[in-house]
Amino acid sequence: MNKFRGAYVAIVTPFTKDGKVDEKGLKDLIEFQVKNGTHGIVPCGTTGESATLTHEEHHRVVELTVKTVKGRVPVLAGTGSNSTSESIELTRAAKAAGADGALMITPYYNKPTQEGLYQHFKAVAEAVDIPIILYNVPSRTSVNMLPETVARCAKIKNIVGVKEATADLNQISQVIRLCPKNFAVLSGDDFTCMATVAIGGAGVISVTSNVAPKDMAAMMDAALAGDFTKARKLHYKLFPLMGAMFIETNPTPAKTALALMGKIKNSAPRLPLYKMSEASTEKLSKVLADCGLL
């Protein structure tokens, strides 16, 4: 069975007041996640602000995550880039650090064709022998990786899954229909993750898990076990929180929530992202309080 199942947290990268990676803060967040039943950790994803980490910081965050996790759950390291050679370098570093797999975003800004996407992932998969999860998020990249392209990639032995963040159950159904049974289709959208599992998906890579790891993991456990009465109850419990995580650009709300909960000291993301407005912070605080997280 594919090990990439359940609720994986797209973990934030906390920074100190002077803008450096807060290593103690990150270790504490990882412990909070593992203790609360998260099924896996994803460092250096979009939520981890990979776009504004230097290569040295990127390597260090992955290395620190692997060392802190100590094999208790899988570590799926974000290693994608819009440059194939850079993606290979980041993926090699993740493998050397001991990551269990690599999460690779479709190249952004360049707008490759479907053939270009296939050749990009094929080149990385052939260069680095590590399990690879593709990551399709058209809202961020301006390119939609079509189900037929995902199915082509699924024939490459170490491409073992996809994070589908289109929130389009039609497209996700096509991916599941066209790919092998053990190919992990993970939701990249908290709102539709339970529905994704209902149609044959394997779980979620979640933003909301940053603040509510226990409930997200329990929802995925229930859905994967076919207990949709319990899963649905948890979905609607978490639904306001899922919305609050996207009041402003991710990961600003997640980092603000963690700071309000006393889990990190500094809520600020790196520029060009900016700290949350007072009005949004007020709305977020109310949702956190209503969910019993403050």
Rank of each mutant, 00 (worst) to 15 (best):
Lys3His: 08
Lys3Ser: 12
Phe4Ala: 00
Arg5Tyr: 09
Gly19Tyr: 02
Lys24Trp: 09
Asp28Tyr: 07
Leu29Asn: 04
Leu29Glu: 05
Phe32Leu: 08
Gln33Glu: 14
Gln33Thr: 10
Thr38Asp: 00
Gly40Val: 04
Cys44Asn: 13
Cys44Asp: 08
Cys44Phe: 06
Gly48Ser: 03
Ser50Asn: 13
Ser50Pro: 01
His55Cys: 09
Arg60Leu: 15
Val61Trp: 04
Thr65Cys: 03
Val66Gln: 09
Lys67Ala: 14
Lys70Met: 08
Arg72Asn: 05
Pro74Phe: 02
Gly80Tyr: 07
Glu89Asn: 13
Ala93His: 13
Lys95His: 02
Lys95Val: 06
Ala97Asp: 09
Gly98Thr: 10
Ala102Cys: 08
Met104Thr: 11
Ile105Ala: 10
Thr106Val: 15
Pro107Val: 10
Asn110Leu: 13
Pro112Cys: 06
Gln114Ile: 10
Glu115Ala: 14
Gly116Lys: 08
Leu117His: 13
Leu117Ile: 15
Gln119Cys: 08
Lys122Met: 12
Val124Arg: 10
Ala127Asp: 08
Ala127Arg: 11
Ala127Pro: 05
Val128Phe: 05
Val128Leu: 06
Asp129Lys: 15
Asp129Trp: 06
Pro131Trp: 10
Ile133His: 03
Leu134Val: 08
Asn136Trp: 10
Asn136His: 11
Asn136Met: 11
Ser139Tyr: 14
Asn144Ala: 13
Asn144Arg: 12
Leu146Met: 15
Cys153Gly: 06
Cys153Asn: 09
Ala154Gly: 05
Ala154Tyr: 03
Val160Leu: 09
Val160Ser: 09
Val162His: 01
Lys163Phe: 00
Thr166Asp: 03
Ala167Tyr: 06
Ala167Leu: 04
Asp168His: 04
Gln171Cys: 01
Val175Arg: 00
Arg177Pro: 00
Cys179Phe: 05
Lys181Phe: 02
Lys181Glu: 14
Ala184Leu: 02
Leu186Gly: 01
Gly188Cys: 00
Gly188Arg: 01
Gly188Met: 02
Phe191Gln: 14
Thr192Gln: 07
Thr192Leu: 10
Met194Cys: 12
Ala195His: 14
Ala202Cys: 12
Ser209Cys: 11
Val211Pro: 07
Val211Met: 12
Lys214Tyr: 12
Met220Tyr: 00
Ala222Phe: 02
Ala222Ser: 13
Ala222Tyr: 03
Leu224Ala: 10
Gly226Met: 12
Lys230Ser: 13
Lys230Pro: 07
His235Glu: 12
Ile247Leu: 15
Thr249Ile: 10
Thr249Ala: 15
Ala254Phe: 04
Ala254Thr: 08
Ala259Asn: 07
Met261Phe: 04
Ile264Met: 01
Ile264Asn: 01
Asn266Phe: 09
Ser267Asp: 11
Pro269His: 00
Arg270Glu: 01
Lys275Val: 14
Glu282Leu: 11
Lys283Gln: 14
Ser285Phe: 03
Ser285Tyr: 04
Ser285Ala: 15
Lys286Ala: 13
Asp290Gln: 14
Cys291Trp: 02
